[in-house]
């Protein structure tokens, strides 16, 4: 709360601040994460809540396994198309305001899994606030992401949200406009595959 000013009165102390700053201060220091441990990163997420890294120092240790009680979705791990429906449902069930951290390269961009089953980044179905690289990222990196998110929350305008209704975040992944981020990128290693049937298929199509 940058503009916190103590005001002296007779026997009673006052603090004067702006309402939105007070709300932001409360929000940023009590993030309730929804640990969506999908794969390897889930283990590092556990380590982060564990004794050495102790996420409680940043007020974000109250992990809840029901999306209705959470405001921070940590997508930790590889998301497949089969799982995407569940992830989107969880996001929809979380009450506003809500934020998303894409933990690890898999959830940021698909990572090393450029395959038929994996979503190339959760941002194709959800709006993401902070991306954390690493496979898996070290807990320090995720803690850094949480600090960055806290700074982002500080800049938000909650009063506008209250007066004008929730802000419509860009809703990604709309049916027709959806494009895989890596579409069109030449896959040289695959083109060299001796069993690669691409040529065969093209030949048959002709």
């Amino acid at each position: 709360m940058g503009s916190l000013k103590p005001v002296e009165g007779e026997g009673v102390g006052f603090l004067a601040t702006r309402v939105d700053e007070l709300i932001n201060w409360g929000r940023k220091n009590s993030l309730w994460p929804m640990p969506l441990g999908l794969s390897c990163c889930g283990i590092e997420l556990m380590a982060m809540i564990g004794p050495k890294f102790d996420l409680a120092r940043f007020g974000a240790e109250a992990a809840r396994f029901s999306p209705r009680q959470c405001d921070l979705l940590v997508v930790a791990g590889t998301m497949t198309w089969k799982m995407a429906e569940a992830v989107r449902t969880i996001y929809d069930q979380m009450p506003d305001p809500k934020w998303v951290i894409a933990m690890g390269v898999c959830s940021s961009s698909g990572g090393m899994y450029d395959s038929y089953a994996v979503v190339q980044g959760v941002d194709s179905i959800l709006p993401v606030d902070v991306y954390v690289p690493g496979c898996p990222p070290r807990p320090d990196a995720v803690i850094d992401a949480i600090i960055k998110l806290q700074k982002k929350i500080e800049r938000e305008d909650p009063l506008r949200r209250i007066l004008k209704g929730p802000e419509q975040k860009p809703d990604l992944g709309t049916g027709e406009t959806f494009k895989q981020p890596n579409a069109g990128v030449a896959r040289t290693s695959l083109d060299l595959h001796p069993h690669d049937p691409k040529a065969k298929i093209e030949e048959l199509q002709k």
């Binding site: 497949t80 089969k82 569940a86 899994y113 395959s115 038929y116 089953a117």
Partner: peptide, 16 residues
Amino acid sequence: VGYLHRGKEKTCESLG
């Protein structure tokens, strides 16, 4: 099962 099926066997056949 299959919510974390990443196609590893196919990947091995493509990568080497």
